[in-house]
Each structure stands twice: as structure tokens, then as C-alpha cells.
Amino acid sequence: MSLPVLAVNELAMKFGNSEVFKNVSFSVEAGETFGLFGKSGSGKTTIGRCIVGLEKPTYGKILVQGKDILRMGKKEFRELRPKVQMIFQHPETSLDPRMKAFENLIEPLKLHSGLKKNALLERGEELAELTGLRPEHLARYPSHLSGGEIQRIVLARIMSLSPAFVVADEPTSMLDVSVQAQILRLMQKLQKETGVSYLLISHDLEVLRRVCHRIAYLEDGTITSVENIKRGINT
């Protein structure tokens, strides 16, 4: 059996004397959407941030493709970083307000691909098309875009790095219902095309039930149960 894309073992986090979460363990398979459900303030976002290396947990292991990112050298972690990406909750602050949408979109490509200007343009155009963006969206500053359009740019930006795993922290909670469905469908489409895995963090059980293969329930800082939604991976 192949290694899970992500395995979290006995993760614990303390801020001072208060324990945010403890003994959190789960794994996510390739092409799977794994849901993490919990109330506001239950530590879901902090778990997500630990996985992408934005926070350091007090205890535990985070294995990405079998390698523990908490015990990795800086150089090794930097090389692995593009493989683990995050979609943040607030579309309005997800893109640099001083860069046009397209500049935001191609930034990771500029950092990692080594592509020259024209090739960069073409790849950016492909990604824009893949995520259903139109040219006029790309010419605008983020403050001129809707939440849904911004989340599309965020998805295009992330997909440019061909990640193995994406932590999606309430990616649709700030969007209205019809746009929510569009973004979730787009995420599913991208999953089918690229085989990316998602850790979908949400306090909306209905959303999780609609798209996840399994859902973990976080209560009082620990995972109390994992529900199997009986949906085959990549179906």
C-alpha cells in the first residue's frame, strides 16, 4: 500500500498554559478530500497552519509523503514547500492588494518555474482558463474582484505549483451559496484532473458532507470520530 500524502501523528499545541488541541492523528490518501469539522475556536485553523509550516506544534509528527516536516532541515523543507499549499479563509486579504490579479497568479511560477516572460504568460493563461477566469478579471486589482473570483485566482496560483496536498481553510465560508457551489465544484474538478488531496476545514457540516470522502470531528481539542462518507476516491 502506498504512503498517505499526509499523516498527522499525535499532534498537540499549547499557547502558554492553554492547550489548543492534543493527540490529533489522521492521514489523507492521494486524491482524497478529508474534512475537518469543528466549532469556531476549536483549533482547526491552527492544525492547518501547522501542516503548511506556518505554526510549530508543541508535540507530534507531520509526515508529508512519508517525511516529517518538523524534523527537516530548512533547505529540505523549502524544496518540499510547493507540494503543500493552503487556501485561506478571507478572500479579501488572500491576494496582494498592490499587485494586479495576474501578477498575483503567476508569482509562485516566477519563484519556482524559471520560465521566461512569454512562457510565464502562456502558463498563466492556461491556469486562468483552467480555473474559469476571464481576461478582464486578471487585469484588475483584487479590490475590484468578487470573493469567488479571488478564490479562483488563489486556486490557479496554488495549482501552478502542482501541489500534492492543499489545506483549504473554510475556502467558501465568506462566499454566497451559489458561488460556494461553483468553487467547490472547481476544487473537485481540479482534484480529478491533478489528483491533488485536500484537507477541507469547515464548521459547515453540509459543505463537508457534500464533498469529502471522510470527515474527522474535532471536539474539545481532540478528534473524537472519523466518519466515512462512502464515496470512492476520485469518483
Binding site: V52, G53, L54, R78, R81, P82, V84, Q85, M86, F88, Q89, H90, T93, S94, L95, D96, P97, R98, N104, E107, P108, L111, H112, V154, R157, L161
Partner: peptide, 25 residues
Amino acid sequence: QEFVLSAVTSGAGDFYIIRKHIVPN
């Protein structure tokens, strides 16, 4: 801000982030 965190998770270095995102904003 999330756009700075996005740049961090994209693998951008400190100097790049300061130059491209922090200083202009």
C-alpha cells in the same frame, strides 16, 4: 495578512517577501 502567508507557503524567501509584499504595502 494572508497574502504574505501565501507567499511564505509558496516558498518565497524573507528578502523577496519584504521587497515584493511588505515594503510596497
